[in-house]
Design a binder for these strands. Structure first.
Lengths: 160, 160
DNA sequence: ACCGCTTCGTTCAAATTCCAAGGGCATCTG
DNA sequence: CAGATGCCCTTGGAATTTGAACGAAGCGGT
C-alpha cells in the first residue's frame, strides 16, 4: 500500500486519522459526562452565540458545521425540543428559517464551556508547544480554505 | 468563550475541527465515487491486509478503528455479505471470532488503493512541506499514545 | 468440579444520519 | 403577471450507530 505516498507521509496520515478519531470520541464522552450536551449541540450553541443577533440561517449553520441539510434539520429540531434554540422564519427570505439562541441555550453553553475547554486543554492543547500550535493553525486553515473552495467549485459547475 | 484557551489555541482548535471534518467527508465521497467501498470498509481491508495471516480478532480491529463493538459487528457483517471478509471462530479463545481477508477483499483493496491515495495526496499531502509532515506526525503520534493510555487507564480502575 | 466474576462478541430497540423527493417561495423572462 | 426555473429547507424511508442486555466462554479460588 505504498503506492504513492512516502512512508513518512503514510505514517503522518495514519497517526492523524487515528488520533483525531480518538480525540473526537473522547471529547464527546467528556461533554456528555458533565453536561446534557452533544458535541454537535455545543458547536451549534457556540456558533449561534457569536452570530449577530444570536441567530443564523439554517444553510449557513449547516455549512459551518459541515452537516448535511437534513442532518441539521434534525439537530435543530432536537435542540428546539430541549429549549436550547428557537426556530423563526426568515424575514428577508420567506423560504428559509433561522435558528435563534434562547436564554436557556446560552445558559447551557455557559455552564458547559469551562468543562469542555478544560477537556480540550487536557487532551490536546496542554501537550503542544507554541510552534506546534502555529503549525497546526497554518496547516488546517490552509486545508479548510482549500476544501471549501473545492466544494464551492464542484457545486457551481462554473462554465468556461 | 475565551474561558481558558488562548486566542491562538482557540483558532488552531477551530481550524483543526472544521478542516478535519471537511477532509473526512471529502475522502469518503471520493472513495464512494470510484469504488464500492466506504472509508470504514477501506480501513478494515488495510488493517487485515497487513495483519499476520490477514486476520484479526474483532476486539483488536475495533480498538484500532476506534469503533464500538456493536458497530464493528455490523461493519463486518456488511462486508461479509459482500464477500470482502470471512468470519472464523478463534481457535485459542472460543469466545471470540476473527475477521479474515478474502481474495475478493484483497482485490477490492488493490483496486481502490490508488484512487484513495491519490485523493489523500491531492486533498492533503500535496500542500504540506516536509517540516509540516514531521510536525503532524509528532503531534498526532503523541496524542494517539496519550489517548490510548487514558482509555486503558479508565477501563482498568488501576488501584494503587 | 463448582461458584462467582470478568471478557468477547452479538443482538435488539431506539436514536441518529443519509438520500431522494417534495413544498413553498424568490427570481427571471417574456 | 403568468410561467419557468432554482433555491432553501423539510419529509419519508432506508441505512447506520449506539447503548443496554445477553449467551457463551475463560479464570481464579475453594
Amino acid at each position: 500500500m505504498t503506492e504513492s505516498l512516502s512512508p513518512e507521509r503514510m505514517t503522518a496520515w495514519r497517526a492523524y486519522i487515528e488520533a483525531s478519531q480518538r480525540l473526537f470520541t473522547q471529547l464527546e464522552d467528556d461533554l456528555r459526562a458533565d453536561s446534557e450536551l452533544t458535541f454537535a449541540d455545543y458547536h451549534v450553541l457556540v456558533l449561534l452565540s457569536e452570530a449577530p443577533g444570536q441567530r443564523l440561517r439554517m444553510g449557513e449553520l449547516a455549512s459551518r458545521l459541515v452537516f448535511s441539510p437534513s442532518r441539521l434539520t434534525y439537530q435543530i429540531s432536537s435542540m428546539q425540543k430541549r429549549g436550547l434554540v428557537a426556530r423563526q422564519s426568515c424575514p428577508e427570505d420567506r423560504r428559509g428559517s433561522e435558528a435563534v439562541l434562547t436564554a436557556a441555550g446560552l445558559l447551557a453553553l455557559r455552564e458547559a464551556a469551562p468543562h469542555h475547554l478544560r477537556s480540550v486543554r487536557t487532551h490536546l492543547m496542554d501537550d503542544l508547544d507554541d510552534a506546534e500550535v502555529a503549525c497546526l493553525t497554518r496547516v488546517f486553515e490552509r486545508l479548510g480554505r482549500r476544501l471549501r473552495a473545492d466544494r464551492d467549485a464542484s457545486s457551481t459547475p462554473a462554465d468556461k
